[in-house]
């Protein structure tokens, strides 16, 4: 059933796949980020309660969703690496990690910036903010573990274990923090309910979500491409690649 995937275990094929996919991801990312952001920040109506400050939602929500999505993607890549012993899967994992960490950071930063006008403080121990902060630590742990090894194949395997252990823990951490939060200070913070959002506000959000997803994908693909070339530097196919691109540069 998964046989069609197997050729991509070869770094060369994975590189070609990155090469083919990257323009698509990049185009979708640029187009939808421009449309979604301009629509959201300029044309969407202001919120009747929060005024214009709600507009940060167009950055905050997509980055928060992608921070978790990227973590799951990273863990899936790690699991694929463990099950089928693919080097490219570990490379994919570590290509995604910093992108996901940056998404987490953006979500935290925009969350704090949103919190200031809404709650009157830069940081409150809101359940979602707290679990997002812990998610950032989990990302940093995976990246630090990967960086600590000299042998990058071993590094990938080790970091992969942490990624998988982390993904098992994320829901536990999330619910425990939520529970802790309601125990300690549920009354002091008026949590956002899920207000039904007006369609003219929702559309730019969805478009931006798509844009962020494509953006994460595009950056990860670029990082994966770099990772593959760096790791395979001594292989003939990389030498051919360099020779080809040099020849093309000379012609121009």
């Amino acid at each position: 059933m998964w046989k069609w995937l197997h050729p991509y275990a070869k770094p060369e094929r994975a590189y070609q796949l990155c090469h083919t996919l990257l323009p698509w991801f990049a185009t979708v990312a640029v187009v939808s980020l421009i449309i979604g952001t301009v629509w959201g920040l300029v044309f969407a109506p202001a919120d009747y309660q929060q005024g214009d400050s709600f507009r940060i939602i167009y950055i905050h929500v997509p980055s928060a969703i992608l921070s978790m999505g990227a973590y799951v993607a990273m863990a899936i890549a790690a699991a694929v690496g463990m099950i089928w012993q693919w080097r490219t899967a570990y490379m994919t994992m570590i290509a995604i990690a910093p992108v996901g960490a940056v998404m987490t950071f953006i979500a935290l930063f925009t969350g704090a910036a949103w919190g200031k006008p809404m709650w009157g403080a830069w940081w409150v121990w809101d359940a979602r903010l707290t679990s997002e902060l812990i998610l950032l630590f989990l990302y940093l742990g995976v990246m630090a573990l990967y960086a600590a090894f000299d042998d990058k194949l071993q590094a990938g395997k080790a970091a992969g274990v942490m990624a998988v252990v982390g993904v098992v823990n994320v829901p536990i951490i999330h619910y425990s923090v939520e529970w802790w939060n309601t125990l300690h200070q549920g009354a002091t913070i008026s949590k956002f309910g899920k207000p039904s959002i007006a369609p003219e506000m929702l559309w730019p959000l969805l478009i931006n979500l798509l844009g962020f997803a494509a953006f994460v994908g595009a950056i990860s693909l670029m990082r994966l491409r770099n990772e593959i070339v760096q790791r395979e530097l001594h292989r003939p196919w990389v030498a051919d690649l360099v020779a080809n691109s040099n020849a093309r540069a000379e012609k121009e």
Partner: peptide, 28 residues
């Protein structure tokens, strides 16, 4: 985490970085 970091010479701080987030539910 010890199993993963045991081959590294500088495992101590890394171990804390890896483990503390995982112990949060227990602490709570």
């Amino acid at each position: 985490a010890v199993g993963l970091t045991v081959g590294l010479n500088r495992g101590g701080v890394l171990l804390a970085l890896l483990l503390i987030p995982l112990f949060i539910p227990l602490l709570i």
